[in-house]
Design a protein around this nucleic acid. Structure first.
Lengths: 128, 128
DNA sequence: CTGCGTGCAAATGCTTTGCAAAGAC
DNA sequence: GTCTTTGCAAAGCATTTGCACGCAG
């Protein structure tokens, strides 16, 4: 049960945190595996998943659910923002601000809680 | 290979189409199984998936990818709209119109193509 | 030392596919 | 009767979990 006992700093967890800081965009477990393995060869996917869970519980990471894709994770604590997904390479990027005009009109009897906006297009790298 | 040979009208496919028309909201394969089995007992999940694929190819159904959830499908041919997901029961509902103020501002070098908005809250049935 | 974290492999859970039998036309 | 569609069961994938060993503290 993470959060109760000790939390040790392993090379693997260090590599994972570093990958998020350097990437500066939400990463999927697969993307993370590639980036973290560049630092710690032999790092396993199971370790990726376990550390992600741990970092989410510690609120160092936040989950970013993407329509029709694998879950992504980003460093937690950021202001309200949305995301852009590149149709070319599939990478997710942060967008600043929120272009929503007003709270959306809901059917009678429905109650609003929150919203998520996803923008699609082509990223700079894929435009070349 | 659907689309090439004959397409036969089976009780199963009829039940599936009827379920979509009656539900009047996007359905997941699981939800669809329940609704369609009420009409044709013993209908299998494999048949659900195969008919969904077939109906999507025929453009009678459209895919609705949901963040962090199973794919949903809705009757195709509707105008630009977005979706509401109930935090209580997980059902997806159609929303009319679009509250987006303007095309979102993207980082330099990025190109806009489209967007999707998801609204969360509580549906009328779960408010009781 | 103590026991948490890791790698491997097996186990899930959801979706897809192979195949023989049932059904549409 | 012919050829598509179905139901069942097995196969795929991505993610999760069990276990024995390795490493952090």
């Amino acid at each position: 049960m993470p959060g109760t006992g000790q939390t040790r700093n392993t090379r693997q967890k260090e590599a994972i945190r570093a990958a998020f800081v350097e990437a500066d965009r939400p990463l999927s477990p697969d993307e993370l595996l590639g980036l973290a393995q560049a630092r710690v060869g032999g790092l396993s996917l199971a370790t990726i998943y376990r550390n992600i869970s741990s970092l989410v519980e510690d609120r160092w990471l936040a989950e970013v659910a993407v329509p029709g894709g694998a879950m992504r994770y980003e460093v937690a604590g950021k202001a309200h923002h949305h995301h852009f997904q590149c149709r070319g390479c599939g990478t997710l990027h942060e967008l600043e601000g929120c272009e929503l005009r007003a709270k959306p009109k809901l059917p009678v009897g429905f109650e609003y809680a929150s919203h998520e906006l996803f923008v699609y297009g082509t990223c700079a790298a894929c435009m070349k």
